[in-house]
Structure formats: structure tokens, C-alpha cells
Design a protein around this nucleic acid. Structure first.
Lengths: 219, 219
DNA sequence: AATAATTTTTAGATAACTCTAAAAATATAT
DNA sequence: ATATATTTTTAGAGTTATCTAAAAATTATT
């Protein structure tokens, strides 16, 4: 029984919703996420249950089985690897990648994704700073942190953004803050929480807003 | 009206069949190519006709309209660019690329394909030696030629294979004949039509079979 | 040209996924 | 605890793409 594109999208939605809370994912929540009707969700959830991708009891919502979770994680892996490819190799901006990655994540070819992984040098995080699971579905332990949380004296690498408005991305571009930029935190002003950083061998003072919307990984 | 994946595949099949002969493409020919039944083809062909992708008169077969042809050529462009990517960047062999490219060719993003084109340095031919149409649908004039057709003294570049059996590909691999290899034809033996070539700065005698299944581009 | 063979189309059904509207179950409020 | 509101499910129907079987048109044969 081949898994369909629609089934994959439902599994992905359930996976993302499941990470938000601890309880089962509700029919309505899935309907909202998938931009469809609750009755359609009920039908699909029954099918996913028959195929053992989810555990489902009437009126009680669903949760992914191990089998379902493995599929979800693999889709996430593919999605994020493609995002890295688009940004690093094809000059996409951080906010342009999502729709295309959404299509590419469904391409079926284990060799393709393993070779892509190697080609990109086994990245651990995507352009938004989210971790990329490895072949076996394991996520990197080191998580991204907002720059505003980094202590004075520490060095870190820019891995993503929270705010992906074009105004914000333009600001980053103007100041040569890019994916992979090395940043050292020199000082934090107590009165406005602005942060002085060393980047590209020059000093720069950035506002609380910026430091709060920039994800970094400390080393 | 969005074009569906199935519609794209029918248009592609009609395009390829249309290149074989001059007449309209028959329902049965499409059915065979698509591995489906003639009745399904009739239904689909009606739909394609309504959407103005094909000209269709009952019992007379179909031909692509300009609109349909533009879509077909764009799919061919995407398919062949992805093939180049897979072989040149992701270590795929010539005979491994087809199924994956068949999936990738349906990804919708003009930016993606233009950037991929640039990333690959605007290749004019795919790993099988077939020409890649440009953005506007124009094919390169210089066509591939069988090595057996190249005259003594001429230099050419290896661009593809006719026979893509693994035995043949292994032979090429063993003799370091690869995509992009420069070949000079030194002599052609009259009695068995074997060809002596200069490749990788050393002489090699190849049989008629090999020279007949190797595509090159003369410069 | 009439008959036979082939191709193509129509008619009616099926499977996957979706919808609306109504019924059933659960959660909330008084 | 009973009534009300919300959520979820069921029932029935539509769409897309497919199929089988039978009818219609075209092509080939004698």
C-alpha cells in the first residue's frame, strides 16, 4: 500500500500539532491546519488509522504511531535539507523557500536525499534555525537560541530568524548578517537591552527587537 | 484552472509521441505510453481539448496546441536540468536518474528552475546527450551525434549513451569514458569499423558496438 | 463494395478525497 | 443536573481519474 501525497500531508500536520501540546490532536485542529473541513479529517483519520499511521478512538483525537512518526520525521528531514539547498546553492532568501520545499519534501528517493545531505555537508539546522534529523530520525541536541539569550563574551553562529518579514530580512542583509555569520556578544546595554556585537570584524549595535528575532547556535 | 500532475504527464507523452511521426498522435499510442486504457485516454484528451492544450477531433487523434507545446517543453527542460544536477552534483549514474527526474520535473517554481540552470552553468545537454531547451523553449542547434559518425581527425565531447545497460556503463567506467570526456578520432579500421580514439591522453581501440552507442558533440 | 478486423468512443462503475447538512457525542454554563 | 454550545461523526453527494464491456467509427481485406 503506497502512501499518498495527501496522507503524507495529514501525517505532517498531525506531527506539527502534536509537538505543541501533550494531548491527542483534535479533528478541528487538523482541519484548521490543513485548511479543510472536519468531516474530511474524520474520513482521512480513519484511513490513517487503518494503515496504522495513527492511533484513533472516536471523539478522542489522534496521535502518531511509531510508524507514523518515522514518516513525519523523514518528511521534516527532506523539507529542511531542501531549504538548505535552496538558500545555500540557489540564492533563495529565507522567506522564499517554504512553498518550494513543501513540494520537494514529497519526492521519493532515498538515494537522492542521502546524496543531497552529503552534498550540503550534513547540515544540522535549516535556514530558519530548526534542527535537521539524520537518516535514523535523530535530532541534533544543540538547539538554537535567541541572540538576546547569549551572554556577554560568548561566540555564536547565526542560524535563523523568528521574524521573517521582508523588512527584517532586508535589515539583516544591509548589515551583512547572514546564515553562518559568526557573532561575538561584546556588551548588553542595561537600559534598552540593545546588544553590541562583533560581526565581520566590526562592531554593531542591534536593538532588542533584532536580538530577539535572530536565532543563533552557541558552540 | 490549475494544471494537474496527470494532465502534465499526458501532455508530455503526447509531445514525445508527436516527435516520432508527423501525423496526429493516436489514442492507442497514448494509452500504451501511459500504461493505461484507451477509454481513459479518450476522457483525458477531451479534458485537455477543453483546456486548449490539444487539438482533438473524434477518431482523428490529437496534436498539441502552442499552449500545450510550451508546457511540454518546459517539463522537458525541468526533467533534463534535474538529470544534470543528479549526475553532476549528487553522484547518480546515467541510468539511475530517470525515475527521480520524473518526479522532480513536476515541481512548480520558475525561480527554482532558473536558479538551478545558473547553478549548473546553463548546460545545453543532459547526461543522455539530449538537448535542454532554454527559458524560452529554444533548443540548442548543435545536436548529438553517434561517435561512429565522427570523421578521422575530429575532436568531440562525450555527451551521452544510447545503450544504458549497466554492462555498457561499466565498460565506459572501466575505460574512463565519462560525460564531458574529450575524444579525438585517430583512425577507423575499415574491416571491422572499430575506432581508435585518443582519450585522457592515451590511445584506445573501441568496437563498432561501442562507437555506435556513444553520443558525442562535435565542436 | 461488402465484410472483417481494429481502433476509438460511450456508458456505467469504482476508488480517493472532498464537500454540505444533519445527527450524535462531548464539553460548558447556568 | 439540565440546557446550551461546541466538537465530531455520519450520510449522501460531487470531482477526478481510472476501469470493463459494449457500441460506433474507421481501416484493412477479399
Amino acid at each position: 500500500m503506497m502512501i499518498t501525497l495527501t496522507e503524507e500531508n495529514y501525517i505532517k500536520a498531525i506531527y506539527h500539532l502534536g509537538k505543541l501540546g501533550t494531548a491527542n490532536v483534535s479533528t478541528n485542529a487538523i482541519a484548521k491546519e490543513m485548511e479543510t473541513k472536519a468531516s474530511s479529517v474524520t474520513d482521512m483519520v480513519k484511513k490513517l488509522s487503518e494503515k496504522a499511521y495513527v492511533d484513533y478512538k472516536k471523539y478522542q483525537g489522534v496521535s502518531l504511531t511509531e510508524k507514523g512518526k518515522a514518516i513525519a520525521v523523514n518528511i521534516v528531514r527532506k523539507h529542511r535539507l531542501w531549504e538548505v539547498f535552496l538558500v545555500e546553492k540557489l540564492n533563495f532568501l529565507w522567506d522564499e523557500v517554504h512553498d518550494v520545499a513543501e513540494q520537494l519534501e514529497h519526492i521519493k528517493s532515498p538515494k537522492l536525499i542521502d546524496e543531497l545531505d552529503a552534498f550540503l555537508n550534513f547540515p544540522t539546522h535549516d535556514p530558519h534555525g530548526d534542527p535537521i534529523p539524520d537518516k535514523d530520525g535523530n535530532f541534533s541536541k544543540l538547539d538554537k537560541v535567541k541572540l538576546s539569550k547569549v551572554a556577554v563574551g560568548e561566540t555564536c553562529t547565526c542560524v535563523g530568524v523568528e521574524d521573517s518579514s521582508s523588512a527584517f530580512l532586508k535589515y539583516l542583509d544591509n548589515h551583512k548578517i547572514a546564515l553562518g555569520s559568526k557573532i561575538e556578544v561584546i556588551a548588553i546595554e542595561p537600559f534598552d537591552e540593545s546588544v553590541t556585537i562583533l560581526i565581520n570584524a566590526s562592531k554593531l549595535n542591534i536593538s532588542k527587537h533584532v536580538s530577539n528575532n535572530l536565532f543563533v547556535r552557541t558552540n
